[in-house]
Design a protein around this nucleic acid. Sequence first.
DNA 1: AAATCGGGGAT
DNA 2: ATCCCAGATTT
Length: 388
Amino acid sequence: MSGGLDERDKRGYAVWVSEVMLQQTRVSTVIDYFKRWMNKWPTLHHLAQASLEEVNEMWAGLGYYRRVRFLLQGAKEVVEGGGRFPETVSDLRKIKGIGEYTAGAIASIAFRKAVPVVDGNVVRVISRLKTISANPKDAATVKSFWKLAGQLVDPCRPGDFNQALMELGATLCSLSNPGCAACPISAQCHVLSLSGENELVHVTDYPTKVVKAKQRHEFSAVSVVEILNCQETMGPQSSSKYILVKRPNKGLLAGLWEFPSVLLEKEADLTSRRKAVDNYLQSSFNLDLKESTRIVSRENIGECVHVFSHIRLKMYVELLVLHAKGNRSIDYKKQGKESITWKYVDNENLGNMGLTSGVRKVYTMVQKHKQTEQSTIPGRRRKTAVRR
DNA sequence: AAATCGGGGAT
DNA sequence: ATCCCAGATTT
Protein backbone atom coordinates (compact mmCIF):
# COMPACT_ATOMS: atom_id res chain seq x y z
CA MET A 1 0.00 0.00 0.00
CA SER A 2 1.57 3.27 -1.10
CA GLY A 3 1.27 6.68 0.50
CA GLY A 4 1.55 7.83 4.07
CA LEU A 5 -1.05 7.94 6.77
CA ASP A 6 -2.54 11.12 5.41
CA GLU A 7 -2.93 9.63 1.95
CA ARG A 8 -4.49 6.51 3.41
CA ASP A 9 -7.03 8.47 5.42
CA LYS A 10 -7.97 10.53 2.40
CA ARG A 11 -8.62 7.43 0.35
CA GLY A 12 -10.70 5.84 3.07
CA TYR A 13 -12.73 8.99 3.57
CA ALA A 14 -13.47 9.48 -0.12
CA VAL A 15 -14.57 5.88 -0.55
CA TRP A 16 -16.66 6.07 2.60
CA VAL A 17 -18.53 9.17 1.44
CA SER A 18 -19.09 7.83 -2.06
CA GLU A 19 -20.25 4.41 -0.90
CA VAL A 20 -22.73 5.86 1.57
CA MET A 21 -24.10 8.12 -1.13
CA LEU A 22 -24.34 5.14 -3.45
CA GLN A 23 -26.52 3.12 -1.09
CA GLN A 24 -29.73 2.55 -3.03
CA THR A 25 -28.75 5.43 -5.28
CA ARG A 26 -27.49 5.46 -8.87
CA VAL A 27 -24.03 6.60 -9.82
CA SER A 28 -25.35 9.32 -12.12
CA THR A 29 -27.35 10.81 -9.27
CA VAL A 30 -24.43 10.73 -6.87
CA ILE A 31 -21.71 12.36 -8.98
CA ASP A 32 -22.68 16.00 -8.46
CA TYR A 33 -23.45 15.49 -4.80
CA PHE A 34 -20.06 13.84 -4.28
CA LYS A 35 -18.22 16.71 -5.96
CA ARG A 36 -19.99 19.33 -3.91
CA TRP A 37 -19.43 17.34 -0.74
CA MET A 38 -15.71 16.80 -1.23
CA ASN A 39 -15.31 20.43 -2.17
CA LYS A 40 -16.90 21.54 1.07
CA TRP A 41 -15.43 18.88 3.35
CA PRO A 42 -12.18 17.64 1.70
CA THR A 43 -11.10 15.51 4.66
CA LEU A 44 -12.58 13.60 7.54
CA HIS A 45 -11.40 16.36 9.86
CA HIS A 46 -13.27 19.00 7.91
CA LEU A 47 -16.42 16.91 8.05
CA ALA A 48 -16.08 16.32 11.78
CA GLN A 49 -16.42 20.08 12.27
CA ALA A 50 -19.67 20.32 10.32
CA SER A 51 -23.14 20.57 11.84
CA LEU A 52 -26.09 18.30 11.20
CA GLU A 53 -27.88 21.29 9.70
CA GLU A 54 -25.10 21.76 7.15
CA VAL A 55 -24.80 18.14 6.09
CA ASN A 56 -28.57 17.81 5.89
CA GLU A 57 -28.76 20.68 3.45
CA MET A 58 -25.89 19.30 1.37
CA TRP A 59 -27.69 15.95 1.25
CA ALA A 60 -31.08 17.45 0.40
CA GLY A 61 -32.61 15.65 -2.57
CA LEU A 62 -30.52 12.48 -2.17
CA GLY A 63 -32.96 10.80 0.20
CA TYR A 64 -32.48 8.34 3.05
CA TYR A 65 -31.30 11.17 5.29
CA ARG A 66 -30.37 8.81 8.08
CA ARG A 67 -27.31 8.03 5.97
CA VAL A 68 -25.90 11.51 6.32
CA ARG A 69 -26.64 11.69 10.02
CA PHE A 70 -24.68 8.47 10.56
CA LEU A 71 -21.89 9.67 8.28
CA LEU A 72 -21.43 12.83 10.35
CA GLN A 73 -21.67 10.86 13.57
CA GLY A 74 -19.09 8.37 12.32
CA ALA A 75 -16.69 11.11 11.23
CA LYS A 76 -16.84 12.70 14.66
CA GLU A 77 -16.26 9.35 16.33
CA VAL A 78 -13.21 8.48 14.24
CA VAL A 79 -11.65 11.92 14.70
CA GLU A 80 -12.35 12.07 18.41
CA GLY A 81 -11.05 8.56 18.80
CA GLY A 82 -7.79 9.91 17.43
CA GLY A 83 -6.96 6.53 16.00
CA ARG A 84 -6.19 5.46 12.48
CA PHE A 85 -8.87 5.24 9.89
CA PRO A 86 -10.43 1.78 10.30
CA GLU A 87 -9.24 -0.62 7.60
CA THR A 88 -10.81 -3.94 8.31
CA VAL A 89 -14.38 -5.07 7.76
CA SER A 90 -14.86 -5.81 11.46
CA ASP A 91 -13.61 -2.37 12.54
CA LEU A 92 -15.56 -0.59 9.83
CA ARG A 93 -18.70 -2.46 10.80
CA LYS A 94 -18.58 -0.85 14.24
CA ILE A 95 -19.36 2.51 12.69
CA LYS A 96 -23.05 3.37 12.58
CA GLY A 97 -24.36 3.37 9.06
CA ILE A 98 -21.65 1.06 7.74
CA GLY A 99 -23.15 -2.34 7.05
CA GLU A 100 -21.68 -5.40 5.36
CA TYR A 101 -21.69 -3.89 1.89
CA THR A 102 -20.12 -0.54 2.77
CA ALA A 103 -17.51 -2.16 5.02
CA GLY A 104 -16.53 -4.53 2.22
CA ALA A 105 -16.41 -1.73 -0.31
CA ILE A 106 -14.17 0.52 1.80
CA ALA A 107 -11.88 -2.31 2.87
CA SER A 108 -11.42 -3.66 -0.64
CA ILE A 109 -11.36 -0.44 -2.66
CA ALA A 110 -9.44 1.82 -0.29
CA PHE A 111 -7.31 -0.73 1.56
CA ARG A 112 -6.93 -3.72 -0.79
CA LYS A 113 -8.42 -6.19 1.61
CA ALA A 114 -9.46 -9.38 -0.18
CA VAL A 115 -13.10 -9.17 0.88
CA PRO A 116 -16.23 -9.36 -1.26
CA VAL A 117 -19.16 -6.99 -1.71
CA VAL A 118 -22.73 -7.99 -2.41
CA ASP A 119 -25.16 -5.43 -3.73
CA GLY A 120 -28.13 -5.69 -6.06
CA ASN A 121 -25.85 -5.94 -9.08
CA VAL A 122 -23.74 -8.71 -7.61
CA VAL A 123 -26.88 -10.62 -6.64
CA ARG A 124 -28.08 -10.43 -10.22
CA VAL A 125 -24.77 -11.58 -11.73
CA ILE A 126 -24.25 -14.44 -9.30
CA SER A 127 -27.84 -15.66 -9.36
CA ARG A 128 -27.54 -15.95 -13.15
CA LEU A 129 -24.06 -17.38 -13.02
CA LYS A 130 -25.17 -20.12 -10.64
CA THR A 131 -28.89 -20.36 -11.48
CA ILE A 132 -30.02 -19.47 -7.97
CA SER A 133 -33.79 -19.34 -7.77
CA ALA A 134 -34.17 -18.84 -4.03
CA ASN A 135 -35.59 -15.58 -2.71
CA PRO A 136 -32.62 -13.18 -2.87
CA LYS A 137 -33.89 -11.29 0.19
CA ASP A 138 -34.00 -14.37 2.37
CA ALA A 139 -31.32 -14.27 5.06
CA ALA A 140 -29.88 -17.69 4.27
CA THR A 141 -29.76 -16.88 0.56
CA VAL A 142 -28.02 -13.57 1.21
CA LYS A 143 -25.44 -15.45 3.20
CA SER A 144 -24.81 -17.80 0.31
CA PHE A 145 -24.31 -14.86 -2.04
CA TRP A 146 -21.64 -13.48 0.29
CA LYS A 147 -19.92 -16.82 0.39
CA LEU A 148 -19.94 -17.17 -3.38
CA ALA A 149 -18.74 -13.60 -3.85
CA GLY A 150 -15.95 -14.31 -1.39
CA GLN A 151 -14.83 -17.25 -3.49
CA LEU A 152 -14.82 -15.18 -6.64
CA VAL A 153 -12.97 -12.07 -5.46
CA ASP A 154 -9.48 -11.62 -6.86
CA PRO A 155 -7.08 -11.28 -3.89
CA CYS A 156 -4.58 -9.36 -6.00
CA ARG A 157 -7.00 -6.59 -7.00
CA PRO A 158 -10.08 -6.96 -4.78
CA GLY A 159 -11.22 -3.37 -5.21
CA ASP A 160 -11.07 -3.47 -8.98
CA PHE A 161 -12.67 -6.88 -9.04
CA ASN A 162 -15.58 -5.84 -6.84
CA GLN A 163 -16.20 -2.70 -8.84
CA ALA A 164 -15.96 -4.65 -12.08
CA LEU A 165 -18.50 -7.18 -10.85
CA MET A 166 -20.92 -4.42 -9.89
CA GLU A 167 -20.29 -2.64 -13.15
CA LEU A 168 -21.06 -5.83 -15.03
CA GLY A 169 -24.36 -6.11 -13.17
CA ALA A 170 -25.18 -2.48 -13.85
CA THR A 171 -24.47 -2.66 -17.57
CA LEU A 172 -24.26 -5.91 -19.56
CA CYS A 173 -25.96 -8.14 -16.99
CA SER A 174 -28.87 -5.75 -16.75
CA LEU A 175 -32.34 -6.32 -15.35
CA SER A 176 -34.44 -6.70 -18.47
CA ASN A 177 -32.19 -6.71 -21.51
CA PRO A 178 -28.86 -8.40 -20.77
CA GLY A 179 -26.12 -8.34 -23.39
CA CYS A 180 -25.08 -11.96 -23.01
CA ALA A 181 -23.49 -12.06 -26.46
CA ALA A 182 -20.95 -9.47 -25.37
CA CYS A 183 -20.51 -10.72 -21.81
CA PRO A 184 -16.92 -11.64 -20.93
CA ILE A 185 -18.02 -14.45 -18.61
CA SER A 186 -20.87 -15.86 -20.68
CA ALA A 187 -18.99 -19.16 -21.02
CA GLN A 188 -19.25 -19.67 -17.26
CA CYS A 189 -22.86 -18.54 -16.99
CA HIS A 190 -24.99 -21.50 -15.99
CA VAL A 191 -28.41 -20.04 -16.66
CA LEU A 192 -27.31 -18.87 -20.09
CA SER A 193 -26.34 -22.39 -21.08
CA LEU A 194 -29.61 -23.68 -19.63
CA SER A 195 -31.58 -21.18 -21.63
CA GLY A 196 -29.88 -22.54 -24.78
CA GLU A 197 -31.16 -26.00 -24.04
CA ASN A 198 -34.57 -25.17 -22.63
CA GLU A 199 -36.86 -22.53 -24.07
CA LEU A 200 -38.67 -22.21 -20.75
CA VAL A 201 -35.54 -20.90 -19.06
CA HIS A 202 -34.79 -17.20 -19.41
CA VAL A 203 -31.81 -15.29 -18.11
CA THR A 204 -34.11 -12.45 -17.08
CA ASP A 205 -36.04 -14.75 -14.76
CA TYR A 206 -33.04 -14.47 -12.43
CA PRO A 207 -32.81 -13.25 -9.77
CA THR A 208 -36.26 -14.29 -8.58
CA LYS A 209 -38.69 -11.39 -8.21
CA VAL A 210 -39.94 -10.67 -4.72
CA VAL A 211 -43.36 -9.22 -4.03
CA LYS A 212 -43.30 -5.89 -2.31
CA ALA A 213 -45.62 -4.29 0.17
CA LYS A 214 -47.92 -1.67 -1.26
CA GLN A 215 -47.46 1.94 -0.33
CA ARG A 216 -49.94 3.39 2.08
CA HIS A 217 -51.68 6.58 1.04
CA GLU A 218 -51.30 9.77 3.00
CA PHE A 219 -52.67 13.24 2.48
CA SER A 220 -51.47 16.60 3.67
CA ALA A 221 -52.51 20.22 3.43
CA VAL A 222 -49.51 22.38 2.61
CA SER A 223 -49.75 26.09 3.23
CA VAL A 224 -47.09 28.19 1.57
CA VAL A 225 -47.22 31.22 3.82
CA GLU A 226 -45.78 34.34 2.20
CA ILE A 227 -45.30 37.42 4.33
CA LEU A 228 -45.19 40.70 2.45
CA ASN A 229 -42.85 43.57 3.20
CA CYS A 230 -40.89 42.35 6.14
CA GLN A 231 -38.72 45.34 6.82
CA GLU A 232 -37.74 44.42 10.32
CA THR A 233 -35.64 41.45 9.32
CA MET A 234 -34.90 42.01 5.66
CA GLY A 235 -34.44 45.72 5.16
CA PRO A 236 -36.60 48.28 3.40
CA GLN A 237 -36.14 46.96 -0.14
CA SER A 238 -37.16 43.39 0.45
CA SER A 239 -40.34 42.03 -1.02
CA SER A 240 -41.48 39.01 0.89
CA LYS A 241 -40.44 35.94 2.77
CA TYR A 242 -41.74 32.46 3.46
CA ILE A 243 -42.16 30.39 6.56
CA LEU A 244 -40.27 27.09 6.74
CA VAL A 245 -40.83 24.58 9.51
CA LYS A 246 -38.31 22.05 10.76
CA ARG A 247 -39.56 18.50 10.84
CA PRO A 248 -39.13 16.36 13.96
CA ASN A 249 -35.69 14.86 14.54
CA LYS A 250 -36.96 11.34 14.14
CA GLY A 251 -38.85 9.57 11.43
CA LEU A 252 -39.46 10.56 7.84
CA LEU A 253 -37.29 13.42 6.54
CA ALA A 254 -36.03 13.96 10.05
CA GLY A 255 -34.83 17.47 10.81
CA LEU A 256 -35.45 18.77 7.30
CA TRP A 257 -37.26 21.97 6.36
CA GLU A 258 -40.67 22.16 4.75
CA PHE A 259 -43.58 24.53 4.27
CA PRO A 260 -46.12 24.52 7.08
CA SER A 261 -48.32 21.49 6.59
CA VAL A 262 -50.72 19.24 8.39
CA LEU A 263 -51.23 15.56 7.83
CA LEU A 264 -54.88 14.81 7.10
CA GLU A 265 -56.87 11.84 8.28
CA LYS A 266 -58.03 11.20 4.75
CA GLU A 267 -58.75 13.03 1.56
CA ALA A 268 -60.43 16.28 2.44
CA ASP A 269 -62.23 19.07 0.64
CA LEU A 270 -61.01 22.64 0.57
CA THR A 271 -63.08 23.75 3.53
CA SER A 272 -61.86 21.11 5.93
CA ARG A 273 -58.30 21.47 4.70
CA ARG A 274 -58.34 25.16 5.47
CA LYS A 275 -59.89 24.49 8.80
CA ALA A 276 -57.03 22.13 9.65
CA VAL A 277 -54.43 24.60 8.40
CA ASP A 278 -55.99 27.50 10.29
CA ASN A 279 -55.98 25.50 13.47
CA TYR A 280 -52.35 24.56 12.95
CA LEU A 281 -51.21 28.11 12.19
CA GLN A 282 -53.15 29.41 15.15
CA SER A 283 -51.71 26.97 17.64
CA SER A 284 -48.15 26.86 16.32
CA PHE A 285 -47.58 30.39 15.03
CA ASN A 286 -50.12 32.42 16.90
CA LEU A 287 -51.49 33.45 13.51
CA ASP A 288 -55.13 34.29 13.88
CA LEU A 289 -56.55 34.00 10.38
CA LYS A 290 -59.98 35.01 11.52
CA GLU A 291 -58.65 38.52 11.28
CA SER A 292 -59.27 38.76 7.56
CA THR A 293 -57.37 42.03 7.39
CA ARG A 294 -54.17 40.03 7.63
CA ILE A 295 -54.91 38.02 4.56
CA VAL A 296 -53.90 39.56 1.26
CA SER A 297 -54.86 36.51 -0.73
CA ARG A 298 -55.45 32.84 -0.29
CA GLU A 299 -55.37 30.69 -3.38
CA ASN A 300 -55.67 27.02 -4.02
CA ILE A 301 -52.61 26.06 -6.08
CA GLY A 302 -53.43 22.44 -6.76
CA GLU A 303 -52.38 18.92 -5.87
CA CYS A 304 -48.97 17.37 -5.93
CA VAL A 305 -48.15 13.70 -5.43
CA HIS A 306 -44.85 12.70 -3.92
CA VAL A 307 -43.89 9.05 -3.64
CA PHE A 308 -41.63 7.53 -0.99
CA SER A 309 -40.66 3.88 -0.66
CA HIS A 310 -43.59 3.09 1.60
CA ILE A 311 -45.84 6.15 1.33
CA ARG A 312 -47.73 7.82 -1.47
CA LEU A 313 -48.30 11.34 -0.27
CA LYS A 314 -50.82 13.60 -1.93
CA MET A 315 -50.22 17.22 -1.00
CA TYR A 316 -52.91 19.86 -1.37
CA VAL A 317 -51.09 23.12 -1.86
CA GLU A 318 -52.31 26.60 -1.13
CA LEU A 319 -50.59 29.97 -1.23
CA LEU A 320 -51.43 32.16 1.72
CA VAL A 321 -50.22 35.75 1.42
CA LEU A 322 -50.25 37.82 4.58
CA HIS A 323 -49.53 41.39 5.53
CA ALA A 324 -46.46 41.76 7.69
CA LYS A 325 -48.19 44.27 9.86
CA GLY A 326 -51.89 44.03 9.86
CA ASN A 327 -52.61 43.94 13.51
CA ARG A 328 -50.42 44.59 16.50
CA SER A 329 -51.44 41.38 18.14
CA ILE A 330 -49.72 39.39 15.40
CA ASP A 331 -46.44 38.09 16.64
CA TYR A 332 -44.83 35.96 13.98
CA LYS A 333 -41.75 35.41 16.04
CA LYS A 334 -43.52 33.85 18.91
CA GLN A 335 -43.13 30.14 18.93
CA GLY A 336 -46.21 28.13 19.69
CA LYS A 337 -46.83 25.88 22.61
CA GLU A 338 -45.73 22.83 20.72
CA SER A 339 -42.25 24.34 20.47
CA ILE A 340 -41.78 23.81 16.80
CA THR A 341 -38.71 25.21 15.11
CA TRP A 342 -39.23 27.48 12.14
CA LYS A 343 -37.60 30.31 10.20
CA TYR A 344 -38.15 32.86 7.48
CA VAL A 345 -36.53 32.44 4.09
CA ASP A 346 -36.74 34.99 1.30
CA ASN A 347 -37.48 34.04 -2.27
CA GLU A 348 -33.89 34.07 -3.47
CA ASN A 349 -32.55 31.92 -0.67
CA LEU A 350 -35.42 29.51 -0.98
CA GLY A 351 -34.50 28.90 -4.61
CA ASN A 352 -30.83 28.37 -3.79
CA MET A 353 -30.93 26.38 -0.59
CA GLY A 354 -31.01 22.63 -0.34
CA LEU A 355 -34.60 21.40 -0.21
CA THR A 356 -36.08 17.96 -0.17
CA SER A 357 -37.62 16.95 -3.47
CA GLY A 358 -41.15 17.19 -2.17
CA VAL A 359 -40.65 20.74 -0.94
CA ARG A 360 -38.96 21.70 -4.19
CA LYS A 361 -41.93 20.35 -6.15
CA VAL A 362 -44.30 22.48 -4.11
CA TYR A 363 -42.10 25.54 -4.47
CA THR A 364 -41.93 25.06 -8.25
CA MET A 365 -45.72 24.80 -8.36
CA VAL A 366 -46.08 28.10 -6.55
CA GLN A 367 -43.57 29.84 -8.82
CA LYS A 368 -45.37 28.61 -11.91
CA HIS A 369 -48.69 29.67 -10.50
CA LYS A 370 -47.41 33.18 -9.92
CA GLN A 371 -46.01 33.44 -13.44
CA THR A 372 -49.20 32.21 -15.02
CA GLU A 373 -51.23 34.62 -13.00
CA GLN A 374 -49.12 37.54 -14.10
CA SER A 375 -49.01 36.67 -17.79
CA THR A 376 -52.69 35.88 -18.22
CA ILE A 377 -53.77 39.21 -16.80
CA PRO A 378 -51.35 41.73 -18.24
CA GLY A 379 -51.26 45.16 -16.76
CA ARG A 380 -53.67 44.24 -14.06
CA ARG A 381 -53.19 42.88 -10.65
CA ARG A 382 -55.47 40.08 -9.83
CA LYS A 383 -56.63 39.93 -6.33
CA THR A 384 -58.38 36.91 -5.03
CA ALA A 385 -60.94 37.85 -2.52
CA VAL A 386 -60.89 36.05 0.76
CA ARG A 387 -64.08 35.78 2.66
CA ARG A 388 -64.57 33.61 5.60
C1' DA B 1 -38.80 -11.46 9.38
C1' DA B 2 -40.89 -7.18 8.43
C1' DA B 3 -41.05 -2.31 8.47
C1' DT B 4 -38.76 2.04 8.02
C1' DC B 5 -36.34 5.26 5.43
C1' DG B 6 -36.00 8.98 -0.55
C1' DG B 7 -35.68 9.71 -4.87
C1' DG B 8 -35.31 9.12 -9.64
C1' DG B 9 -34.37 6.63 -13.92
C1' DA B 10 -35.56 2.80 -16.86
C1' DT B 11 -39.17 0.23 -18.87
C1' DA C 1 -47.94 2.87 -13.93
C1' DT C 2 -44.06 -0.67 -11.86
C1' DC C 3 -39.55 -1.92 -10.60
C1' DC C 4 -35.49 -1.30 -8.12
C1' DC C 5 -31.21 0.56 -7.46
C1' DA C 6 -22.96 0.56 -5.37
C1' DG C 7 -28.34 -0.75 1.95
C1' DA C 8 -28.68 -0.19 7.08
C1' DT C 9 -31.24 0.08 11.20
C1' DT C 10 -35.18 -0.50 14.03
C1' DT C 11 -39.09 -3.04 15.51
